[in-house]
Amino acid sequence: MPFVLSRVDDRLIHGQVVIGWGRPLGVQRILLIDDDVAANDWEQDLYRMAVPEGVTIEFAGTAAAAARLGAWQADARRSMLLTGSVPSLVRLYAADPVALHRINLGGLHHRPGRTERLPYLYLTPDEYHSLVELELLGADITAQDVPSAVPVGLGALA
């Protein structure tokens, strides 16, 4: 089935993801897409501990994930796609624009070069322009950290 949520969040799996979104959406599988984590066994062990019983987690680097989007959607489980960076998102979108039609910006945090767009969302000018381009290609992008927050469109993040 289609992904129940495609989210960009540089903290990857944390409370908002597992409790805030995972429970109400009934998420059964988290697809964690991050090149560093995919290459690191002990980090994967940590993230496995973070998901509750009954939720499975799969790791992949961006390139591998782009090739597996179709297979993941053929699976009947309710899946959340999770990536920590805008470039990774752009790559995944290019691989399957339909699968990533709706994109949730959940949290990108302060880093040199980024400016505050929302309290939980800091973007560099490049990251912002990449997102605008995705929207021009047809993606539906909103920022929303938790379900109880009001979603904010890209236009308000300029």
């Binding site: 409370g15 993801v17 597992v18 409790i19 940590l46 993230y47 501990m49 973070a50 998901v51």
Partner: peptide, 17 residues
């Protein structure tokens, strides 16, 4: 630095739960 970053999310998810 990586240890701290990788611990944060899981400790958040576990502790919040």
């Amino acid at each position: 630095v990586r240890l701290r970053a990788a611990l944060a999310g899981p400790l958040g998810a576990l502790g919040d739960s």
